[in-house]
Write a protein that binds this DNA or RNA. Structure first.
Lengths: 239, 239
DNA sequence: TTTACTAATATGTAGTACATAACTACTAAT
DNA sequence: ATTAGTAGTTATGTACTACATATTAGTAAA
């Protein structure tokens, strides 16, 4: 019996069950293809639901389910009577929906944790390309407020404030939003690790030090500083 | 008249039209909330559509549209008769759907271009944490095949092969897939830039050089090398 | 030209109906 | 005891109909 179970689960990994694509899936794909081929620009009106249904040879129901998906992704916008119009999809909006620590698998969580470290390490070049004196001043203000507030809730708050400002300094909105989305996942993994391994360590290089580097050092110095700042996290990966 | 138009567009920025959330939107949100609160684990069966519809006080149609969205995101899996089961969402699957250079705005494309550069620069630490001699050997093979193939199609192919292998060496699947998804966008922006500014430059540090660094240098050396390798792209950002 | 009213219509939602895949339980056969 | 076959059950997938409502377009009035 246990052998049978083993074979079962083994099979499941080797050949995964083929997903019978439903009409809705196909219609979604067709619509996407159609939008691309017709090279619609944002604002253009799409055919009405019934016309699409007729053209595709399916019920309006199916078309609506497919459209509902595209609408969720922000690819189309529907207003009564006027029809649907193509819009700029919000690429991160869809990510936001699934990036919930509670429903993500352990492996994915770990991957995302690492991904954020990578993003943090790659920050330097963009920052040095675009930082302004005002940015640095603002960072100093943030750091100044950190003193004497090492307790848990404040700690996290300041982490977010400081690193959030760094992302903002890159001048890259997508990057900034992406990083901020990753934060809850990051925290989640961190909390978990702390629970298992004891207290969270802090790198030798502080926020204060990083600001100093920003004022006097170059991009490479900053990256080295960031590496040291994140060292406890990198060390965790080795284990 | 032009004043009216101005006021209009000004208004649109100040107070954006409140999106009348449809039943489907609300149901989607409720379902998501429900899944979280009940802390379902992958494999658990969900109530049947009609039950959900009754409980929510809406038609099965609405429930199905909402479920269709979650299904697209890979959050649930439906099989006839058995009902629906919660599954691990594929966080990148949804991104893949909207990451089409043709429908993304110019700003977003630029953001993604930069994001990829950032990711490439952050590669070093993970690689040095996990690279094996076999990986390096494989990279050498890839580089060896590059000689005398500088024409366009081959060039791109080898870029993908080389950098793809680097991502793989990080041992981070999410990272790898993410990078690969960004590739088409990257290429698109590149092609566009080339069309405007003339030929694409190549950094002084070649793939060959990077492999050498992998063999003899440390993570910092590698990052410096990568920076030099990507220099033309970073220079473009300055302009 | 602007405002007010009217008609037309595409979407949003509800409801019914049914084919089919997939599960269960049972029986028969090896 | 396992496999194979059979029949019954049922939840999903799909189609069709119907209608309320928001929004547009057209028309009349100021």
């Amino acid at each position: 019996m246990s052998l049978a179970v083993y074979i079962m689960s083994d099979l499941k990994n080797d050949i995964r069950p083929l997903e019978a694509s439903t009409m809705t899936d196909q219609v979604e794909s067709r619509l996407r293809e159609y939008l691309k081929r017709k090279s619609f620009v944002p604002g253009d009106a799409l055919p009405k639901e019934q016309e699409l249904a007729d053209a595709l040879g399916v019920s309006r129901n199916v078309v609506r389910e497919a459209l509902s998906r595209l609408r969720m992704l922000g690819m189309i916008d529907t207003r009564k009577k006027r029809g649907m119009v193509l819009t700029q999809p919000d690429i991160l909006g869809s990510l936001e929906r699934v990036l919930d620590p509670l429903i993500l698998g352990k492996n994915t969580l770990k991957d995302i944790f690492e991904l954020r470290l990578v993003l943090e390490m790659g920050l330097a070049d963009l920052i040095y390309l675009r930082k302004t004196p005002e940015d640095v001043t603002e960072l100093e203000t943030i750091v100044a407020q950190e003193v004497n507030k090492q307790q848990k809730p404040f700690r996290v708050e300041h982490e977010i404030a400081f690193h959030g400002k760094l992302y903002q300094m890159t001048g890259n909105d997508t990057y900034m939003r992406f990083q901020k989305m990753l934060l809850p996942v990051f925290e989640y993994v961190l909390d978990y690790e702390i629970q298992v391994n004891g207290q969270a360590d802090v790198g030798k290089v502080t926020h204060q030090d990083l600001v100093e580097i920003l004022k006097n050092g170059d991009a490479e110095d900053f990256r080295r500083g960031m590496k040291a700042h994140l060292k406890p996290h990198f060390d965790r990966l080795k284990a």
